[in-house]
Protein backbone atom coordinates (compact mmCIF):
# COMPACT_ATOMS: atom_id res chain seq x y z
CA UNK A 1 0.00 0.00 0.00
CA UNK A 2 1.29 3.47 -0.86
CA UNK A 3 1.57 5.83 2.09
CA UNK A 4 -1.17 8.08 0.76
CA UNK A 5 -3.68 5.30 0.07
CA UNK A 6 -6.57 4.71 2.47
CA UNK A 7 -8.07 1.31 3.25
CA UNK A 8 -11.41 0.98 4.98
CA UNK A 9 -13.56 -1.96 6.04
CA UNK A 10 -17.22 -1.31 6.86
CA UNK A 11 -19.98 -3.58 8.13
CA UNK A 12 -23.11 -4.06 6.03
CA UNK A 13 -25.28 -1.98 8.33
CA UNK A 14 -27.74 0.80 7.51
CA UNK A 15 -26.11 4.10 6.51
CA UNK A 16 -22.55 2.71 6.77
CA UNK A 17 -22.13 3.80 3.16
CA UNK A 18 -21.94 7.34 4.54
CA UNK A 19 -18.71 6.44 6.34
CA UNK A 20 -17.17 5.62 2.97
CA UNK A 21 -18.40 8.89 1.45
CA UNK A 22 -16.65 10.83 4.21
CA UNK A 23 -13.30 9.35 3.18
CA UNK A 24 -14.02 10.00 -0.51
CA UNK A 25 -14.87 13.62 0.26
CA UNK A 26 -11.65 14.18 2.21
CA UNK A 27 -9.42 12.58 -0.41
CA UNK A 28 -11.24 14.29 -3.28
CA UNK A 29 -10.69 17.67 -1.64
CA UNK A 30 -7.04 16.77 -0.95
CA UNK A 31 -6.32 16.21 -4.66
CA UNK A 32 -8.34 19.26 -5.68
CA UNK A 33 -11.39 17.62 -7.25
CA UNK A 34 -14.20 20.10 -7.93
CA UNK A 35 -17.08 19.94 -5.43
CA UNK A 36 -19.49 18.65 -8.09
CA UNK A 37 -17.11 15.84 -9.01
CA UNK A 38 -16.74 14.92 -5.34
CA UNK A 39 -20.54 14.78 -5.05
CA UNK A 40 -20.68 12.47 -8.08
CA UNK A 41 -18.07 10.18 -6.51
CA UNK A 42 -20.04 10.10 -3.26
CA UNK A 43 -23.28 9.25 -5.04
CA UNK A 44 -21.64 6.47 -7.09
CA UNK A 45 -19.95 5.13 -3.96
CA UNK A 46 -23.29 4.98 -2.14
CA UNK A 47 -24.73 2.93 -5.02
CA UNK A 48 -21.74 0.56 -5.03
CA UNK A 49 -22.03 0.05 -1.27
CA UNK A 50 -25.78 -0.54 -1.19
CA UNK A 51 -25.50 -2.92 -4.17
CA UNK A 52 -23.01 -4.92 -2.10
CA UNK A 53 -25.20 -4.71 1.01
CA UNK A 54 -28.29 -5.95 -0.86
CA UNK A 55 -26.95 -8.43 -3.39
CA UNK A 56 -23.54 -9.84 -2.40
CA UNK A 57 -24.71 -12.57 0.01
CA UNK A 58 -21.41 -12.05 1.82
CA UNK A 59 -20.97 -14.31 4.85
CA UNK A 60 -18.68 -11.79 6.58
CA UNK A 61 -21.27 -9.02 6.01
CA UNK A 62 -18.49 -6.50 5.45
CA UNK A 63 -17.10 -4.67 2.44
CA UNK A 64 -13.49 -3.61 1.95
CA UNK A 65 -12.73 -0.33 0.26
CA UNK A 66 -9.43 0.97 -1.05
CA UNK A 67 -9.01 4.64 -1.95
CA UNK A 68 -6.06 5.59 -4.15
CA UNK A 69 -5.12 9.12 -5.10
CA UNK A 70 -2.85 10.34 -7.87
CA UNK A 71 -2.19 13.52 -9.79
CA UNK A 72 -4.83 12.41 -12.27
CA UNK A 73 -7.62 10.74 -10.32
CA UNK A 74 -9.32 9.39 -7.24
CA UNK A 75 -9.76 5.63 -7.64
CA UNK A 76 -11.93 3.56 -5.31
CA UNK A 77 -12.08 -0.22 -5.20
CA UNK A 78 -15.01 -1.90 -3.45
CA UNK A 79 -14.74 -5.60 -2.66
CA UNK A 80 -17.73 -7.46 -1.17
CA UNK A 81 -16.48 -11.03 -0.55
CA UNK A 82 -19.85 -12.35 -1.68
CA UNK A 83 -21.02 -15.00 -4.14
CA UNK A 84 -20.46 -12.92 -7.25
CA UNK A 85 -22.83 -12.52 -10.17
CA UNK A 86 -22.97 -12.89 -13.92
CA UNK A 87 -22.96 -9.44 -15.52
CA UNK A 88 -25.01 -10.49 -18.56
CA UNK A 89 -27.67 -12.05 -16.31
CA UNK A 90 -27.72 -8.95 -14.09
CA UNK A 91 -28.13 -6.62 -17.07
CA UNK A 92 -30.94 -8.81 -18.44
CA UNK A 93 -32.74 -8.74 -15.07
CA UNK A 94 -32.38 -4.95 -14.93
CA UNK A 95 -33.86 -4.69 -18.43
CA UNK A 96 -36.76 -6.94 -17.44
CA UNK A 97 -37.42 -4.84 -14.33
CA UNK A 98 -37.51 -1.65 -16.44
CA UNK A 99 -39.89 -3.30 -18.93
CA UNK A 100 -42.22 -4.24 -16.06
CA UNK A 101 -42.15 -0.66 -14.79
CA UNK A 102 -40.26 -1.54 -11.62
CA UNK A 103 -38.42 1.42 -10.17
CA UNK A 104 -35.37 -0.27 -8.66
CA UNK A 105 -32.19 -1.53 -10.28
CA UNK A 106 -30.48 1.76 -11.15
CA UNK A 107 -27.27 1.26 -9.17
CA UNK A 108 -24.98 0.05 -11.97
CA UNK A 109 -26.32 2.63 -14.42
CA UNK A 110 -25.74 5.48 -11.95
CA UNK A 111 -22.22 4.29 -11.15
CA UNK A 112 -21.37 4.17 -14.87
CA UNK A 113 -22.87 7.61 -15.54
CA UNK A 114 -21.41 9.39 -12.52
CA UNK A 115 -17.85 8.05 -12.70
CA UNK A 116 -15.29 8.48 -15.51
CA UNK A 117 -14.07 4.90 -15.56
CA UNK A 118 -15.65 1.77 -14.07
CA UNK A 119 -14.48 -1.81 -14.11
CA UNK A 120 -16.47 -4.64 -12.51
CA UNK A 121 -15.00 -8.09 -11.99
CA UNK A 122 -17.10 -10.80 -10.38
CA UNK A 123 -16.34 -14.38 -9.43
CA UNK A 124 -17.66 -16.93 -6.89
CA UNK A 125 -15.26 -15.37 -4.36
CA UNK A 126 -16.78 -11.92 -4.64
CA UNK A 127 -17.32 -8.82 -6.71
CA UNK A 128 -14.79 -6.08 -7.17
CA UNK A 129 -15.87 -2.66 -8.43
CA UNK A 130 -13.06 -0.32 -9.43
CA UNK A 131 -14.11 3.21 -10.29
CA UNK A 132 -12.20 6.39 -11.01
CA UNK A 133 -12.98 10.08 -11.21
CA UNK A 134 -10.48 12.21 -13.09
CA UNK A 135 -9.44 15.69 -12.01
Amino acid sequence: MKTDDVDLSIPMLPDMELTATTVAESLGAFIGLEATKIDEVKMALIEACINAFEHSRSHERRIDLSFKISDKALTITISDGGDGFNMDDALRRIEEKRDKGEKRGWGLTLIAELMDEVDIASSPSGTLVKMSKYR
Binding site: L18, K42, M43, I46, I50, K103
Partner: peptide
Protein backbone atom coordinates in the same frame (compact mmCIF):
# COMPACT_ATOMS: atom_id res chain seq x y z
CA UNK B 1 -26.86 16.62 -0.33
CA UNK B 2 -27.21 12.95 -1.22
CA UNK B 3 -29.79 10.51 -2.52
CA UNK B 4 -29.66 6.84 -3.38
CA UNK B 5 -31.52 4.98 -6.08
CA UNK B 6 -33.72 3.06 -3.62
CA UNK B 7 -34.94 6.33 -2.09
CA UNK B 8 -35.52 7.86 -5.51
CA UNK B 9 -37.50 4.78 -6.59
CA UNK B 10 -39.86 5.36 -3.66
CA UNK B 11 -40.24 9.02 -4.67
CA UNK B 12 -41.20 7.88 -8.20
Amino acid sequence: RMVNSVGVAIII
